[in-house]
Design a binder for these strands. Sequence first.
DNA 1: AAAATAGTGTACGTGCCGTTTACTAAGTGC
DNA 2: GCACTTAGTAAACGGCACGTACACTATTTT
Lengths: 198, 198
Amino acid sequence: MSTPTDHRSAPRRRGEELVDAILSAACQELIEVGYAKLSYESVARRSGASKVSIYRRWPTKPELVKSAAAHHAHIPQLPGEPSTLQADLRSVLGDVARQIDAPIGQLLRALMAASVAEQAPSMAELSWGMGPGLMRKVAEQAVARGELSDVPVGLVLSVPTDLIKQRFISYGIVNQEFIDDLVQLIVLPLWLGDKSSR
Amino acid sequence: MSTPTDHRSAPRRRGEELVDAILSAACQELIEVGYAKLSYESVARRSGASKVSIYRRWPTKPELVKSAAAHHAHIPQLPGEPSTLQADLRSVLGDVARQIDAPIGQLLRALMAASVAEQAPSMAELSWGMGPGLMRKVAEQAVARGELSDVPVGLVLSVPTDLIKQRFISYGIVNQEFIDDLVQLIVLPLWLGDKSSR
DNA sequence: AAAATAGTGTACGTGCCGTTTACTAAGTGC
DNA sequence: GCACTTAGTAAACGGCACGTACACTATTTT
């Protein structure tokens, strides 16, 4: 008589409401304990949902984690008032770097773990905002101001964000000093195409 | 009487011999089933060692995996006959890209997973040969030939290998086409400092 | 020869996996 | 209003791996 364990009575959540609860719980869990220690059982406990409901929607852990991360939906920060290509780059990339610190960093780390651990090449899709799109905007503004002759091709556009990701993976942190060096030594010379800024 | 399970008699391996057996087994296991599915029990079974012996030396899975990867020690491939900066880059980076395919790729993937999953920033140390060192050699030869005025700074030197790693993480494969684009659109313009090669 | 060191097999409790079962609340068609 | 379908819940299952403990023994050191 100790455990009246039967929540089959409560107003039963469905559809979006339930999904929200599960993904939020998964996010929290990711931030607190990380990817490796996240389990279906813990998410079920935390969200108050049943394991089966979770398995039905996300048969594997990477899928669940990716949905959770996407659900969190921390959209990037806009360039703000355009000024100079160098200033814009430092500002935007600096914001990205700052966002990469806790607790989002832990979430990103989890996301990468999900991508790397199992065969899940869809890491590319989840560029968490800081993808070519962001860089393209910056480049377009520079072109409009006449600082840049053309918007670089995709591969070149994504160099800064790719290198930031790489830095994060290798060293765990991305500070402003790195951003400054990145802009000064790599992005500007590469985009402008001369060595004068070094 | 079915199981005479007691190998406590056999010539008992110790020290380096035992370590070798364990790490080799771990490597094989990594290549076959990947990081996520690798377990202490499977490594113990495969190596014929006991779990305790493994736990004593590598208390956590990332540590074990990193040792295993380091033990494998596939050193990079040398530039061979130097010719042109562009040719050297394509050759060396192409080799790196080819090495990144199976089975080494799976091992690298495991290594990254180990680094990313838990706080293990020592990914940087294990640059599996394709680090700044390799690029420095290429650059130095180009300087000796007069193609390059100076050897770029470390950050710039590691751009090609960093971007290859990033590509591997995001898309799972690194083909020669990517290498060609990388050399043509990024490395040469960045190192030479002009847009003529685009 | 005695003692310290280190490897082996076995067993244990715990936690999570992924699935199945039985039940029931919420929506749907009539 | 009522049958009927859909979907969420609790509980239990066998299985596997975890991480640790124990008793034992082979090897090395003193």
